[in-house]
């Protein structure tokens, strides 16, 4: 029970401090599940993130289950999902109940403009950590560069980019293994 509460509150904090969608939860996820508790490794986080993007449904929920199911079972996964959902549910119900008020408070808008700047900096820091982990040779540098440009130009669906990267990874590894095999 104590463990479940710990999971719930870790993901409650993640849900409460994610502004604007699944990608901006990465800095919070890194802090709560890699740095603070050591539940998973940095590499696992980015593996799960790739998977979470390809699955249907919400990235936040997919991440919560992917991280917590193997470690803490179905109950742990459920606690994580409840935790990540609860802050939004409460805040939105509160705002909706007194709409016209909170959404147009001037000081609140100023606060959010500031928060968006911090979120941008935090996401850049998350990218730096992911790059250190994922870019291990020339081939992976090319893959990350191509993925970056393709999404920036907004020409290809991110799900397709992820699938192509998986195929590229398999192809590159196979090719280099075969070449090494011939040399020996």
């Amino acid at each position: 029970m104590k463990r479940l509460l710990q999971i719930f509150f870790a993901f409650f904090r993640i849900g409460a401090l994610t502004f604007g969608g699944g990608y901006s939860m990465l800095p919070m996820l890194q802090k709560e599940t890699v740095d603070k508790t050591g539940w998973i490794r940095e590499n696992q986080l980015s593996d799960y993130y790739a998977l979470a993007q390809c699955e249907p449904g919400l990235i936040a929920v997919n991440m919560a289950v992917l991280i917590c199911r193997p470690l803490f079972g179905v109950a742990g996964a459920a606690a994580a999902v409840l935790g990540v959902v609860m802050p939004s549910l409460l805040i939105i119900l509160l705002i909706a109940a007194c709409l016209g008020g909170a959404a147009h408070l001037v000081w609140l808008e100023h606060a959010f403009s500031g928060i968006r700047v911090a979120v941008a900096a935090l996401v850049i820091q998350a990218v730096v950590r992911l790059l250190k982990n994922g870019v291990v040779d020339k081939a992976t540098a090319v893959i990350s560069g191509v993925a970056f440009v393709l999404l920036l130009l907004d020409v290809v669906n991110p799900v397709l980019i992820i699938l192509a990267a998986a195929l590229a990874g398999i192809g590159v590894r196979r090719f280099s293994q075969r070449r090494r095999g011939k040399r020996i």
Binding site: D47, A50, A126, L131, G134, V135, I143, A165, A166, I170
Partner: peptide
């Protein structure tokens, strides 16, 4: 091997998202 390709791609994708965030916030 698939994850060997996925990790750098995820970093690139989030990098592009970061550019979008910068646009919105700055």
């Amino acid at each position: 091997d698939a994850f060997y390709g996925l990790r750098p791609a995820v970093a690139g994708l989030i990098g592009a998202v970061a550019v979008g965030l910068l646009e919105i916030s700055l």
